[in-house]
Design a protein around this nucleic acid. Structure first.
Lengths: 142, 142
DNA sequence: CGTACACCTTACAGCTGCTGGAGGTTCAAG
DNA sequence: CTTGAACCTCCAGCAGCTGTAAGGTGTACG
């Protein structure tokens, strides 16, 4: 039986994150000691590990929920898992494409900065004027 | 004089976003009509365009704030702008590297899924077992 | 048995960068 | 002067956590 802290350490998760997963229903409510502290078993360790691996691969929690669900019903066809993975792969590829364009843009910007005064800085100029590029409407910060 | 809606349309920004930028001090408080509606001038249009371009290039608001600040003092050396741009470029490059690793991982996962039942699905299996990879601690969802 | 100290508990605020809605006012066209 | 779109403020919410405050629990050591 693991305390929440031990489980956290084993999976590289923060304690609060585990409680958060419980709150949103990704992790089941664990047993408690008489004093009210959570105690976890091997199943919980597996499930949390699964979640963490999927997170490391960038799957959003919604997708992970679907995958977990699938894992709970081993006789269902695995197409769904495949679909989820493919969907995610597509997104990753789109992001890479976007970021590559971005990198080119930024490199150009940096290369052209001559190091003078802000008034004639290419970086600032580019940001002021460059209106057309990157009209793709995916999430910006990614 | 532009209404907030007109400014929004011209810059491809949502009205709420403009108000948000004002709230966090990225945009100045504009003049108002007697009835209390915001009215914007050419300066505001320029500033907001600048912000939007920088956002399209993925600069976080904090960096944009610094860049704007720099633009307001044209005699300062432009090293700072260069530094900010370089810092951002580095981050973008790190993200690309991460995402490339991810893509490889996901491709492998998808390729190996034979289409059977969930019980023997490679996708699920990989997520269950694959503990080591991608130990880089950058933000996961990116 | 006492106590020190790590660990646990709940509750809630905050992060980034917006987005949406409710409920009410103003403006410009007809 | 009326209408209806666009504006106003305020507040809640999204993902996915993270951090803090104020207090209770569990255990090892003396």
């Amino acid at each position: 039986m693991l305390t929440i802290g031990a489980l956290a350490k084993r999976t590289g998760t923060k304690v609060q994150t585990i409680r958060y997963y419980e709150e949103i229903g990704l992790m089941p409510e664990p047993g408690r000691t008489e004093g009210g502290q959570r105690r976890y078993g091997a199943d919980d360790l597996d499930r949390l590990s699964f979640i963490r691996h999927a997170r490391q691969l960038g799957f959003p929690l919604g997708a992970i929920r679907e995958l977990l669900d699938l894992g709970d019903h081993p006789n269902r066809p695995c197409e769904e898992a495949d679909t989820i993975a493919r969907r995610h792969l597509k997104q990753v590829e789109r992001r890479i494409a976007r970021l590559n364009a971005l990198r080119t843009e930024l490199r150009r910007m940096v290369r052209e900065c001559g190091g003078g005064r802000a008034a004639e800085c290419r970086v600032l100029e580019v940001l002021r004027d460059h209106a057309e590029c990157l009209t793709d409407h995916e999430e910006i910060g990614a």
